[in-house]
Computed example of a mutant assay.
Amino acid sequence: MEAPTEAVLFDLDDTLCSYRRSAADVLEVAFEQAGVGPVFEPATYYGRYREYLEKDVEFADFHEQCFGDLAVEAGHDRADGVAVARAFREERDQRNVEPLPGAMTVLDAFADEYALGLVTNGHPEMQRQKLEAIEFLESFETIVYAGCDTRPKPDPEPFSVALEALELEAERAVYVGNSLSSDVAGARAAGVRSVWIPEAGSASEAPDPEPDYVLESLTDLRTPLWN
């Protein structure tokens, strides 16, 4: 017999919130706000940003290094790229994020019955800005910024850290996320049951790894599957 569920842990990006506009659209605004014009093409950024993500630098430095290098390579001053990076971060993570349908309803409905936690890959500065923008920062009893506080998902460490903070064993929690490779795989590695909510059109008849539950949308969590 399964242990009763006492905690529900959530992923953040594309599970509870998403961006309203593409990075290209946000870059256009950032160029204007920085007052420097389009110092590099968005396609150039798309082709390079993962290179900088893999470097051992702070989140703010990542964007400033990347945009600064792109500006120099395009024949502009590094300071222009740095100015664009700062405007880009503020525009993207404070003004460009919105909760997904049903997110607030689910969190409100579960708050009285379960301990709520957030386990998200991403730098605290970036993710905290999103949570503040959608007014979710106070919704969770514990937040783990995986990749900074711990190793990133799908490593089991961030899930274990969240459960330790809640003083619960893995079998008493479920994790809700949209990624098989990060969320479902990480939860399974930590011994936590997983709820997979695939993006529209990405559902598979034989998902690998296999989640414990599959839902069409976050609103289906109003009646928990694990009861």
Rank of each mutant, 00 (worst) to 15 (best):
E2S: 14
E2I: 15
P4S: 12
F10P: 02
D11V: 01
D11L: 03
L12N: 01
D13S: 09
D14I: 04
T15I: 02
C17W: 04
S18A: 15
R20P: 06
R21S: 11
A23F: 11
D25W: 06
E28G: 12
F31M: 03
E32W: 08
P42G: 09
T44V: 14
T44P: 08
Y46T: 13
Y46L: 15
Y46W: 14
Y49W: 15
R50C: 11
R50K: 13
E51P: 09
E51T: 14
E51D: 15
K55S: 13
D56I: 06
V57Y: 10
E58I: 11
F59V: 10
F59D: 12
A60S: 14
A60C: 10
D61S: 15
D61P: 08
Q65K: 12
F67Q: 04
V72K: 05
A74H: 08
G75M: 09
R78F: 06
A79E: 14
G81M: 00
V82G: 02
V82Y: 04
E90V: 08
R92M: 14
D93M: 04
D93F: 10
R95G: 06
E98A: 13
P99T: 01
M104C: 13
A109R: 07
F110N: 09
F110I: 08
F110W: 15
A111V: 07
A111R: 10
D112A: 15
G117A: 02
N121H: 04
N121W: 01
G122A: 03
G122L: 03
P124G: 04
Q127W: 02
L131H: 02
E132S: 13
L137M: 11
T142K: 04
G147E: 03
D149Q: 06
P152Q: 10
D155F: 14
P156A: 11
P156V: 05
E157Y: 13
V161F: 12
A162K: 02
A165V: 10
A165M: 13
L166A: 07
E167F: 08
R172E: 11
A173Q: 01
V174D: 02
Y175F: 14
Y175W: 08
S179V: 04
S182Y: 14
A185P: 02
R188N: 12
R193Y: 04
R193K: 11
E199W: 08
A203S: 12
P209Y: 06
E210M: 15
P211D: 06
D212V: 05
D212I: 04
V214R: 01
S217T: 01
S217L: 00
L218T: 00
T219N: 08
W226S: 11
N227F: 13
